[in-house]
Design a protein around this nucleic acid. Structure first.
Lengths: 120, 120
DNA sequence: AAAAACAATAGACCATGGTTTATGGTTGGA
DNA sequence: TCCAACCATAAACCATGGTCTATTGTTTTT
């Protein structure tokens, strides 16, 4: 499909698609037309972009996403890939825990102290 | 205390302290010395900074943090403050959920599809 | 055919969250 | 006294994650 369709169906802008491509997150191939140089974006990019949007909302960086898709693409050996994924999962869990701590702080108050509590 | 001590004890750099102050997250008062214009950072800033570090690690923006401390400082009425805090809590929960979804994706595979799965 | 919509490329621009540099003054220990 | 470490201020700089503009060419729609 062409970039506009991909952008439309994935919910990110054309510019963002190009930005992601420049940063190695997705890839396109030369189109079959002789008259233009429109690129063709294979269907799989749609799946990826759906993931990127989720991952972005979860606070994941472009570099992290790239690590993950490279690991998943089997460009490196399977056990290394598993390690990469595992470590990203652990980072995400850390982050979720940290969020939980902040939520608790906001709900109940600061750790031991008195001032700067939500109950003020 | 002076900026260096605050930075040291809070674990952020002096530059970051100044940056946070410029952005309304903490405040200082003029020092008592006649010969210099060193600022004095009240103890409470330490408590705040401890929170900011947590909040930052949880992915909270400066603007969000500012909203929270302004709400907690009682500069606006209590019910409004509670609303602000509540909505930040909800945003954090959203974020945590999103992270959980990404974790599950990475552990089990994509939603319905076949390609781009961690199992590759 | 003419206009509107789309595409490619390159580079400028923007906000966010800091960090670094430059300049000049202050303080504390050897 | 002299140097290292500290402080203040302002402005420049940086990476990240995009977004916007300009230019040029291609479809598609009317």
């Amino acid at each position: 499909m062409r970039i506009g369709e991909l952008a439309e169906r994935s919910g990110v802008s054309r510019d963002t698609v190009r930005f992601y491509e420049r940063n190695g997150l997705i890839s396109s191939v030369a189109g079959q037309s002789e008259t233009n140089n429109y690129r063709d974006y294979p269907e799989e990019n749609l799946v990826r972009l759906n993931f990127f949007v989720k991952a972005r909302d979860a606070g994941m960086s472009i570099a992290d996403m790239r690590d993950i898709i490279e690991a998943m693409d089997g460009r490196c050996d399977a056990s290394l890939a598993r390690n990469v994924i595992e470590s990203k999962i652990n980072e995400l869990k850390e982050r979720a825990d940290q969020i939980q701590r902040v939520i608790e702080f906001l709900q109940r108050g600061p750790d031991p102290d008195g001032d700067f509590a939500p109950g003020n």
